[in-house]
Design a protein around this nucleic acid. Structure first.
Lengths: 351, 351
DNA sequence: CTGAAAGCGCTAACAA
DNA sequence: TTGTTAGCGCTTTCAG
């Protein structure tokens, strides 16, 4: 008789499934099945087991479950940005909040890795995640031109979902908003309706897929109105270089009367640069941002921007993955709302 | 003879330590010891094993290691804030970046949980982490008045380190800057030197330990100059309610000529509120923030603020924990620099 | 100095 | 229906 395993041994050895089984007067496998809702047991037994588990405060050891089965109940996410860039832009935080809101209630964890932008770092991180079997799947963000991560993950056999615009059609399951182009198009229409004719665009880094995509949407919208862009510029997302770019363009003879930015932090930096030159916003220059970060609402003027529900994107990505992993009761049909223009105070008729 | 385990079996079964052992012509235990630098083996053998491991692209399974030993090589962090609050404030992102910069190179993971502010949620999350043995230790932030997490974690036997000011002396190992009061004191001195006499303070939520602490530092610094505060106000960290508070106080007869805020986002919202009232910053009102978030440098006027190196705090916390967990080659003596005033453009002599 | 053997806590076949 | 058994991949005594 296995009388050696007494429950609650002074707090030294961890409580195991055997302790619960002993207390409930059943076998370990019965406990396992009942807890995981597998076999069919009389309600009385189930109740007894549940009570025993609760009493002993027992939860299956994640390590043992992972070793046995495969599921680690963890999702990986790797941010391949320099910390400094990361810090300036709440993009990730918003996304993560959305992801977590779906993972947490299902007792999934989010394993986060922040690696710099050195070439090999990101790939190594994914390899590790896969080799060490630390996560069941990963969430990819910031799709890049010529992105090699899809192929890598396929090789590694790690399920993945991409948040954003894929580099190539269908390289990996993707979660993105319906009607991507809507918000930016509305922004252009809004500016044109206000009377603007010289409209500039400041995009993000060229290696991001959405940089090219958004610029194209901008151009198309403008063309549809019979206009061509006043200037097409580039900056970093954090907005560190945006000031210089904007200062330069506002000094020109044919300075734009409105600027559309690919991100709120850039827009914010743009507003500051303009003000520094004595150009009032929106009096002397209209500004449109993108993403609708909370900070935009706290500024003066409040930022007119394209709202993208990053948290919802995060939730959708998490749900997609969860469904893909065979999690029960996951509603994967989440429709992500298209980006929409939010008109606030930073746009007005041209001077 | 164990001839059954052939390495590289078509990609089906995962590569195990046995495969490496076979390829290197040694026993599994030898591989284990060599990889972990335990026993003493001839250099030739060590080299052979290393090469075999590399060739097979083998990494120990995290689950197996965790199950066997205890170390999961993961650190937990639970953010008990409402996602919305989290989003508005890059505090966590900065901290996390710092933490990760130390964890990543040592192949430790950061398991992040974002739970709302509902009473039980946070405690449940910690319990889970402990019961499921998902992490080796946790990092605590946002010390709260009457914080019960220390006791909880002690009960759970989970090592922890707190970033910030502890609620009570020595409840848990703490990482904080030396000379906490320095930055805020400098801020007050700076304003007084500029000629300000009516200085207000806008602090954060009362349940945070540092709210009370910072306010006290502010009061002490003022008293030392023979002054008393013009107004003592409270707002949320995200700055959502800051506008109202500032608008109200600026409308008074005895409106302050300078306001010190407990956070940059609050300061930023304060500047906007002032501007909305037609009060120029710094011409009509001087403003000092706290934390030196990147956004402060991109505004006009650039924010005068108390710089706190959050990333360094994060690094220090990670190192402390790593050392505590017996990780080799960890230099725990990291001194975290005291917060210092950074004078930029949002402060000037009173009108 | 090296290898064989015994589990860590759990679950999925198999027996009873 | 329930319990017994055999590992998942690794580390760590303990023999050889």
């Amino acid at each position: 008789m296995a009388g050696g395993t007494k429950p609650g041994r002074g707090g030294s050895g961890r409580t195991t499934i055997a302790d619960v089984a002993t207390l409930a007067g059943v076998s370990p496998s019965a406990v396992s099945k009942i807890v995981n809702g597998k076999g069919s047991f009389p309600e009385a037994t189930r109740e007894r087991v549940r009570r025993a588990a609760a009493q002993l405060n027992w939860t299956p050891s994640a390590a043992a479950v992972a070793l046995r089965g495969a599921r680690t109940r963890a999702i990986g996410m790797i941010a391949g940005r320099d910390p400094d860039l990361l810090n300036s832009d709440p993009y990730f935080t918003l996304l993560i909040a959305g992801i977590e809101s779906e993972l947490a209630p299902r007792d999934y964890g989010l394993l986060l890795h922040i690696v710099g932008e050195e070439p090999g770092a990101e790939e190594r991180a994914y390899r590790r995640l896969a080799d060490e079997r630390r996560v069941d799947a990963v969430i990819l963000t910031e799709s890049r031109v010529g992105d090699g991560r899809f192929a890598l993950l396929r090789t590694l056999g790690l399920p993945a979902v991409l948040v954003g615009t894929p580099w190539q059609p269908d390289p990996v399951p993707t979660v993105q908003a319906a009607g991507q182009e809507q918000g930016l198009t509305e922004a252009v229409d809004h500016l044109v309706a206000l009377g603007h004719r010289r409209i500039a665009y400041v995009g993000g880094p060229e290696d991001r897929v959405h940089t090219g995509y958004r610029r194209q949407v901008f151009l198309d919208a403008l063309r549809r109105r019979g206009l061509s862009p006043s200037h097409l510029l580039t900056s970093d997302f954090a907005g560190h270089t945006t000031g210089e770019v904007v200062t330069e363009v506002l000094g020109r003879e044919d300075a734009p009367t409105a600027i559309v930015f690919a991100g709120d932090m850039m827009a914010l930096a743009g507003v500051s640069a303009a003000r520094r030159l004595g150009v009032d916003v929106p009096g002397g220059l209209s500004v449109v941002g993108h993403d609708d970060l909370p900070v935009g609402r706290m500024l003066h003027p409040r930022l007119t921007t394209v709202r993208q529900d990053l948290a919802q994107l995060g939730r959708a990505a998490a749900l997609d993955l969860l469904g893909r992993l065979g999690e029960e009761g996951v509603d994967r049909e989440t429709v992500v709302a298209p980006p929409r223009l939010v008109v606030r105070e930073s746009t007005a008729p041209p001077p």
